[in-house]
Nucleic acid binder design. Structure first.
Ligand SMILES: [Mn+2]
Ligand SMILES: [Mn+2]
Ligand SMILES: [Mn+2]
Ligand SMILES: [Mn+2]
Lengths: 219, 219
DNA sequence: AAATAAATTTAGAGTTATCAAAATTTAAAT
DNA sequence: ATTTAAATTTTGATAACTCTAAATTTATTT
């Protein structure tokens, strides 16, 4: 049985490993979890002896198969609870992440099975992120940030990179929601901001916002 | 902000104070929480400095108004989650207590408000226990254990004293459910077991079971 | 190739909660 | 009123996690 803290470390390492496609560094973990490098090193030792991660001194860590399975289990719980909060309790999508951070640690396999059924076996959470299945299988469909696109390119908005409440509320304000068509109309060289066509409306977004909008390319 | 452990102590002290109508002893807390008297004394000091309980050395503790409010808030959460688990996720009534023990510590006032609304503002949990309102008001209608009754007396079964899974499953087996009429038909002097009329069926129950069946007297 | 900078680990110490066992106080029995 | 028993508190030690600051290793400049 893992502690609350151990679970959070595994989840953080998983997320960082997806971003970097490589070994995860001590400092990046410290930044993600908002703790100090010294604490991270301590926990790395612990998770290593439990064979949840592999670690060579000064060389960063990677999750073992077992560690990855645990991490995906927590992410599954997190995202299912987010669906519950939005679809059943009528929370806004920017309010649910913090609460799900707590709910993801509730221990009961049966609870998650029943919750999944109650929600109608959803495949994505309110921010467009895929929900791993019971066995930890996750459908990672290739996502492109619109900041990588050129003029005239576009697709369907499927997710938002960071579930930051301020970001999500701003998107609400602009009328940007998941599932609609988005297309790059112009790129302003000066600051990288973009003119986009979202659902037949023209909008200007900063490069910082653009980075956070993830699409599935339309063929 | 209280820790998980502090919350559990306050809840335990509240429950014990209801049973005893008096100061709660160190040993009874230790038994309830399944810990040692030494640990209880340590925590008593901590909760006293936080003014959540009052304590005189060797004389037991009582909750302050603030402590009572906190305890009732946790009980409110516990019982609302139990309703959710039974009514929405189709758990059996003997399966929910353990999970609610975890869920009761999730911190979010808004979550509980919304959950309460989603459940239709229930007034009792699946075991018949009253749910405190947002302000900590609890409708403690007078409950009588049928073990205190004489032959011919009875009422409506409104609650079960202990939410012990084995007990609850046995009651299921006997067909004993909350909300139906119950009446004492005979008392066997030898071991205190009782013959009861439950919902027009005759049943024999041990004195141990009888103690746990709580009724509201019919007038 | 040295020197400097950055990242990582180690060392030492603090917090919260736990336990077993000893010491103290209160309650019960003789 | 003593003695004995029971309840409670204190003491000393441990576990999990945290921090700051010093020491070490690796990476980057010059
Ligand atoms: Mn989230
Ligand atoms: Mn978390
Ligand atoms: Mn319960
Ligand atoms: Mn609890």
């Amino acid at each position: 049985m893992l502690t609350f803290v151990e679970e959070n470390y595994l989840k953080a390492i998983y997320h960082l490993s997806i971003e970097s496609n490589d070994k995860v560094t001590t400092n990046s973990i410290a930044a993600q979890i908002q703790t100090t490098p010294g604490s991270v090193t301590e926990m790395i030792k612990k998770l290593s002896t439990k064979k949840l991660i592999k670690h060579e001194k000064y060389q960063g860590v990677i999750l073992t198969e077992e560690g990855k399975k645990v991490a995906l289990g927590i992410i599954r719980k997190h995202r299912l609870w987010e669906v519950f909060l939005v679809n059943k309790l009528a929370f806004a999508w920017d309010e649910v992440h913090e609460i799900a951070e707590q709910l993801e640690h509730i221990q009961s396999d049966k609870l998650i099975e029943k919750l999944d059924k109650f929600l109608g076996h959803p495949t994505t959470d309110p921010h467009g992120d895929p929900i791993p299945d019971v066995n930890g299988k996750i459908k990672q469909l290739k996502k492109y940030s619109i900041s990588e696109l050129g003029i005239g390119e576009g697709g369907i908005l499927i997710a938002v990179k960071k579930s930051n409440p301020e970001l999500l509320r701003y998107l609400d304000k602009l009328g940007i929601v998941i599932g609609e068509k988005i297309k790059v109309m112009d790129i302003i060289e000066f600051d990288g901001s973009m003119q986009i066509n979202f659902n037949k409306k023209l909008l200007i977004i900063s490069s910082e916002i653009a980075k956070n909008l993830l699409i599935q390319k339309a063929y």
